[in-house]
Simulated assay, not measured.
Amino acid sequence: MARCNAFPLSFFTRRALFLSVSLILYCCNISQLHAAPTTLGASSFETYISDDGEPARINNLLKKVFEKAELDVELRVMRDAFLGSSVLTGKLDGEFAYVNLGEDSSNLLLSDVYLPAYLYAVSKNAEVESVRLFPHLKDNRVAIENRFANTPMFRTLKEIKWSRNPSTFDAFRQLADDRAPFLLTTELLARELNILLANDNEETLHYSAKPLAQTGFQLAVRKELADAKSMIERFNETVSSMQSNGEFNAPLSLPWLTKDVDGDGIADFIGHSDITRSSDSLATAYSLDGKPTSKNSKFFIDGKAHESLEQAQVSLVKDETPSTRASLLDKTTYQRLLQRW
C-alpha cells in the first residue's frame, strides 16, 4: 500500500502562510470596494447637459437618480464626434442621454425613457400653429441642430430644406435673423427661449399644433457590461418612483409634471413642495408619459394624492402672484440675438 508522509509545518511557516492568505483576501476586498465606476458619456446640449457649470437639467437629475439607486456611475461630457466610437471601443460603458432617432442600438441595453423629448416646429409667425405633420413644412427652410439632422429619421425627410446648425444658439440665430422661418427644436428649449424673450418684452415663439416627433432620453449601456441588466432594472425602478413622488420637478426646473401615477389610463398632475407654488399654472405641466389629463386627474404633492387642485394647494406655498424665473439660457450669450429679434 502506498503511503504519504505528512511533514508538519513549523510555527513560523504556518504564521507566514496565514498572513499571506489574509493579505490576499484583504486586497481582494479592497479591490471590490474600490471597483471602477460605470462610465457613461454624452455630448453637450444646452440647458440639458453640461460640464462647465452651465444649467444642465439632465446632469442634475441623474446625479440624484444614481445616488438614490446606489449606482456608482461617472458622467463624462465629450464632443459628439468621439461619443459613439468611445462606446463601441469600450472606452465608455454607455451613454446617459441616449436619444434614439432610428440608429442601430442592437449592441446596447436601453432603459425606459426617463425624460421625453417632444420636437415641435416653432416660428415667429403664428401660421406655424396650423402645422401638424412634417409634409406641412414641405419646401420650407427649417433650422435644426445637427444632433437631430444627422439621424436616419431626419435624413429621410428630403422634401424639407433643412438648415443644419452645430449648436442650439446657431439654430436659434437662424430664426432671429429670418434666415429660416421655422425651427425644429425640443419643447423645453423653446420654452426657455420664450422665457428669455418675455423677460425682455419681446414677442414669443408660436408652436406647431402638436409635436412633429416624439423621442426621449434613455440610459444606454453596452450589453457586454457585467450586471448591465440589473443596473438598468434598478435605474428604471428608481426613476419611476422619483417621477411619481415629485423628485423630478426641482432638477428639471418644472413646477408641474404629468404622469399616470395610479394606472387608470389618465395622467395625473405631479408637484413638489420644494418648487411648486400655488400660483403655478397647470397649463405649463410637462408630460412624462404622453398620456392626456382630464377632469378626473388627481394631484400628487410630495407623493401624496389629492382629489382637487384646491386640496393640493394646501400643501404648497401660497403665492397669489405668478412668479417669473430667469431662463436657463444665458442672457449675456443671447443678448445680440435678442437685439435682432
Rank of each mutant, 00 (worst) to 15 (best):
K158D: 14
R325K: 14
V314Y: 08
S208E: 00
T185P: 03
R155A: 14
A69K: 10
A126V: 04
K158W: 10
L115V: 00
V122Q: 01
F169V: 01
L25P: 04
A6I: 15
A6M: 15
L62C: 06
I144Y: 07
L188A: 02
V113R: 06
V239C: 15
N29F: 13
T186P: 08
L254G: 06
A6N: 14
W256M: 04
L337F: 05
L196F: 04
R164P: 00
W341G: 06
E54Y: 08
I195D: 00
K91V: 00
S323A: 08
N199R: 12
P181C: 03
L17Y: 09
D260M: 11
G271R: 01
K91Q: 15
Y118H: 09
N199Y: 04
S278Y: 02
L108V: 03
E192W: 06
I301R: 04
E127H: 03
A305Y: 08
Y48R: 08
S244C: 12
Q243A: 12
F18C: 07
K158S: 15
D200N: 12
L119I: 14
G90Q: 04
E237W: 02
A285Q: 02
E203P: 02
G102H: 13
S308R: 14
K295M: 05
S105P: 00
G94I: 07
P292Q: 13
D178C: 11
R132W: 00
T151P: 09
L205A: 05
Q32E: 10
A209L: 01
C27E: 01
F217N: 11
E320N: 01
T284D: 08
T186N: 13
H136V: 02
L23Q: 04
S241A: 09
R234Q: 10
N194F: 14
Y118A: 06
L196A: 03
N29P: 00
E203T: 07
A81L: 11
L338G: 06
G90Y: 06
G94E: 08
S253M: 14
S240Q: 15
A312Y: 09
D104F: 13
V65A: 10
M242A: 13
D260L: 12
Y334Q: 03
E187A: 06
F148E: 02
F7I: 13
Y118V: 04
H34S: 12
T186A: 11
F154W: 15
M78C: 05
R164Y: 07
H34G: 00
K298H: 13
M78A: 10
I24M: 15
T47Y: 04
T276C: 02
N201R: 01
F300D: 03
N5I: 13
L115M: 07
L288S: 02
A16M: 08
W256L: 05
T168W: 12
D274F: 00
V261L: 07
I195T: 08
V128M: 02
F299E: 05
C4K: 14
F154V: 10
L212I: 04
N150M: 09
E202W: 06
I275Y: 01
